[in-house]
Amino acid sequence: MIASLTQDLAPVRAFSARDGAALLSVAGVLTVVGVLLVEGLWHGVVDGGASAFFWFTNGLLGLLGLASAGAVIAMASPRVGSRSDAPLWLGAMLAILPIVAVLSLVRQQHGVEVITNDMYGIHCLSASLFATTLMFASLTVWLRRGAPVSVNAAGWLTGLASGALGTLAYGISCSMDSVSHLGVWHVAPVVIASLAGRLIVPPLIRW
């Protein structure tokens, strides 16, 4: 067996996390360009009109997305001793946002209706999910080229990374910067994408 494997040996390009980052960056740039072409940039982002909660939410999404994407990229080259706890803590931090949104509305009259009657909510949810697809696909392709050994975790993290970065990319076009809107409709896509990642990715990357 050793002789036949040696006989078949051909040079290979060694794994580098930079290649994975480059692949994801291309997908991210294409997504942002697509959002700008279809939805346009919200002027509040550049003229200082956006609320502090807008920056807080999108900052958390960015950190969560980058931490999760970094973990996914590293997972293509396995090793005993590898840990990816950062996305877990950042995800827990993001989970505070919908809680804050609900708590801020619960004492108001018709508070729940503020969320359910948000006429832009479903659009933000569906557009954010659409914006995740390219990055979701690029991370899945990267994992398929690699040798992930924690396939379920890789699935969760792929959904988490693409969900957070996709929602962030779409977020630059959204002019709704209230606590209730961002805390619910800009967090839900991350949850949905994570579940999709857990269901879709493992069968595709198992080897």
Partner: peptide, 26 residues
């Protein structure tokens, strides 16, 4: 050994070899 051969490109040259092999073995 076959997995090592097929996935040899995924070894990161900046990291130790045995933890990589052990992860595949596990």
């Amino acid at each position: 050994m076959l997995a090592l051969h097929n996935k040899r490109a995924t070894y990161d040259q900046t990291r130790p070899f045995l933890p990589w092999l052990a992860a595949i073995a596990r």
